[in-house]
């Protein structure tokens, strides 16, 4: 067994409810910490006695602890979401490819997140906002089902203050909502996109990523200027078991962040 296959013990140090089913956990190492992650990478989180699942890092790069934003959808994610401060969690990683947001230095960085898909993008946004002067513009477009299901909502104003344009839209508004009501792709047109000088990072449900990428292509961007984060079931995390195979890609190793150039032909194949 290699080191990356042995979970390291961490403890929940903080817990923040994001929405009715989504929680952000901060984890501190019980002993020696794991190597720090790059934006877009993920960890395998082990809820003792229940199971292990891949979860992206959602905290700032280089932070001492680990931050993960988890939506309760099944047994393991539910167990992680209900972890209380002090509770132990096993962690392996970091795994996978990163956003490489710095490739957009001197250009526009366009970040588009749908639902919980904003979680893997948050480290890239925070990294870019540490040095906003190195980008022409930083734009973050956020889509969610409803205002109550927006993650990191308390931070958008801070991102704006740090130099980003942040636009938020929901599929269904409630009476108190005064923002956009539309599909997230409808925010692209008014965003002032310069298709020749933009790097786009997209994460969300697969259909949302495909439609968003198509909107960007129609606006004149090329597939190699667009990066998406893909998810498949994972087990080993190190390219050995084949669980995360997606066409020719092993997503734990060749992903989760891949160029749309590589992803587009695979996303159009049913049941891959």
């Amino acid at each position: 067994m290699t080191m990356s296959q042995v979970p390291v013990s961490y403890r929940v140090s903080e817990r923040q409810d994001e929405t009715h089913d989504t929680v952000t956990l901060t984890l501190e190492p019980a002993g020696a910490p794991l190597e720090s992650s790059k934006p877009g990478q993920f960890m395998m989180l082990y809820a003792f006695g229940v199971g292990e699942v891949p979860v992206s890092v959602s905290g700032p790069p280089g932070a001492a602890g680990l931050t993960h934003t988890i939506r309760a959808v099944g047994a393991v994610s539910r167990a992680l979401c209900s972890a209380a401060p002090g509770q132990a969690v096993g962690v392996r990683g970091p795994f996978g490819t990163s956003w490489h947001e710095s490739d957009a230095f001197g250009q526009d960085l366009l970040v588009i997140g749908g639902g919980i898909g904003l979680a893997p993008l948050r480290p890239a946004v925070l990294a870019a906002l540490r040095e906003p002067g190195r980008y022409r513009h930083i734009t973050v477009l956020i889509g969610a089902r409803s205002p109550a299901e927006l993650v990191f909502a308390a931070e958008y104003e801070r991102w704006r203050d740090s130099g980003a344009t942040v636009e938020v839209t929901v599929d269904r508004a409630d009476a108190g909502w005064h923002g956009h009501v539309s599909v997230v792709t409808q925010l692209v047109g008014p965003s002032g996109l310069d298709p020749r000088r933009t790097l786009a990072l997209i994460c969300g449900p697969e259909v949302m990523m495909r439609l968003t990428a198509q909107t960007l292509l129609a606006a004149g961007m090329t597939a190699s200027q667009i990066r998406v984060s893909l998810e498949r079931n994972m087990q080993c995390g190190v390219g050995e078991c084949g669980h995360c195979q997606f066409g020719p890609l092993l997503l734990c190793r060749d992903g989760p962040v891949v160029s749309y150039h590589a992803a587009a032909p695979l996303l159009s194949i049913r049941e891959l």
């Binding site: 749908g114 639902g115 599929d171 599909v183 409808q186 969300g204 449900p205 949302m208 049941e271």
Partner: peptide, 20 residues
């Protein structure tokens, strides 16, 4: 756009009972 919103893409997917 209306059709996409009807799809409720951000909802938690329900695992299908079987078959494609």
């Amino acid at each position: 756009a209306a059709r996409i919103r009807i799809l409720d893409l951000y909802a938690v997917p329900v695992r299908s009972a079987g078959g494609p």
